[in-house]
Design a binder for these strands. Structure first.
Length: 136
DNA sequence: ATTCTTACA
DNA sequence: TGTAAGCA
């Protein structure tokens, strides 16, 4: 199916769909006119990708584990090697959580020991304005 | 009307 | 990621 249909059926923008392909998460063939032609089961693959992405996995690990996982969300069948990779990911996350916790405690410590200053310093002059920081 | 690539915000 | 440009 064409990218437009896949986009409608998955509610994922064509932009993102092309990005997923670029990252090796999904594949497609090319029609004579150059248009991408996705497999009929592409919608399911995209759903699986979204779930894995929501779990905080990188496109890199998803790429390696995708070909060996059937089903979606919480109920997916995975090969032993995939389970091992996920276990390693979880451990890596745990280490990051611990490192972040130490950082947070360090920051909290600064607050606790900080003594009330008189005034805030004057704003730094002329620098490239950092626009909106909010990321969706 | 749709998709494609490239590139900037 | 969105969006715009210039094609096919």
């Amino acid at each position: 199916m064409l990218i437009g249909e896949l986009s409608r059926r998955t509610a994922v923008s064509t932009r993102l769909l092309r990005y997923y392909e670029e990252q090796g998460l999904i594949t497609s063939r090319r029609l004579p006119n150059g248009y991408r032609d996705f497999p009929e089961d592409a919608p399911e693959t995209v759903a699986r990708i979204r779930g894995l992405l929501s779990a905080g996995l990188s496109t890199e690990v998803i790429r390696d584990l995708l070909p060996c996982a059937e089903g979606t969300a919480p109920n997916l069948e995975a090969c032993p090697s995939v389970i091992g990779a996920l276990r390693a990911e979880a451990e890596g996350m745990q280490r990051r959580i611990e490192a972040l916790s130490r950082s947070r405690e360090a920051v909290l410590r600064y607050i606790a020991e900080a003594r009330p200053a008189a005034e805030d310093p004057a704003p730094a002059p002329g620098r490239p304005e950092a626009a909106s920081a909010g990321r969706a």
